[in-house]
Amino acid sequence: MNNIELPAEKEPEITSADEISLLVVILDTNPTQKMLRDKQNQLTNIVDSVVAFSNSHLMQKAQNKLAVMACHSKTSQFIYPGAKKPLDVRQVDGQYEAFLLVEKTVKQNLAELLASESSTAVTESLLAGAIAMALCYIARLQRTKPPGSKLNSRILVVSGSGDSASQYMNYMNVFFTAQKLNVVLDVCALDQHLSLLQQCCDITGGMYLKVPQITALLQFLLWVFLPEPPIREKLVLPPPVKVDYRAACFCHRELIDIGFVCSVCLSIFCKFSPICTTCHMVFKIPGPLAVKPKKRKLKL
């Protein structure tokens, strides 16, 4: 067919305008966070900003999906969509019904969660566990999505806690899983610097931002975290920060620069130990180094 040119086959690809975008927000509601203890109504303000941000995500496209989790000191739970039947809401003002439903469900479930927490033990936020639950949810939605559609997912972690090296192993596990699943992990640090979570943003291609003022939280969320991953390259967003890639030793969970590495399973220790705790490999204790006899120069 030299004479007839077939018009260039334009595959009607699914552009990012047709993709379903799933956002999972993990909100750290642990009452032991410094910023929550300092100011009384801080949590309400943060929840309001997060709800407004979530509704903005739903506003982008009719097919966008949302899930919100609360990460508490003893447990993590989905507060939207809740486990129970969705509430029957009617509009009370000009707000779109679906947005009103999100707001009401989040506030109701969060209130129930906070009220049910009776002990005052001081514990860290279980963020790694919450991220794992979010990844399971995303995997389920990937399996059940309609054939022929594309789903891109991301997780946004909003937290005021500090770094917790004790969860190092768990963090590494979820970070690599997220990378395999093509899930983008964004982190919004409200109070302290989170160097471990910075590493995860680096691996998965997400954004890390430490918010300078909490009062402007909504503005930062809308500007930096609202665009979904496919369109982030069209906008100018804050560049990635330099990441602290020090590993944590397996025995004390402290970040170290120099250490011992097991040659079988690659686990890291700060001090030598004859048996590797992970793979139970036995290593010989290194004895004193043998000294080679020096060749004596013949004295003539």
């Binding site: 509704n55 506003m59 009617r90 003002d93 000009g94 707000q95 019904e97 947005f99």
Partner: peptide, 16 residues
């Protein structure tokens, strides 16, 4: 108003 609230409810939303 559609995003955050405020203003009047839309016309078909009276309670039933």
């Amino acid at each position: 108003a559609a995003l955050l609230g405020g203003g009047k409810p839309w016309s078909m939303s009276s309670a039933l």
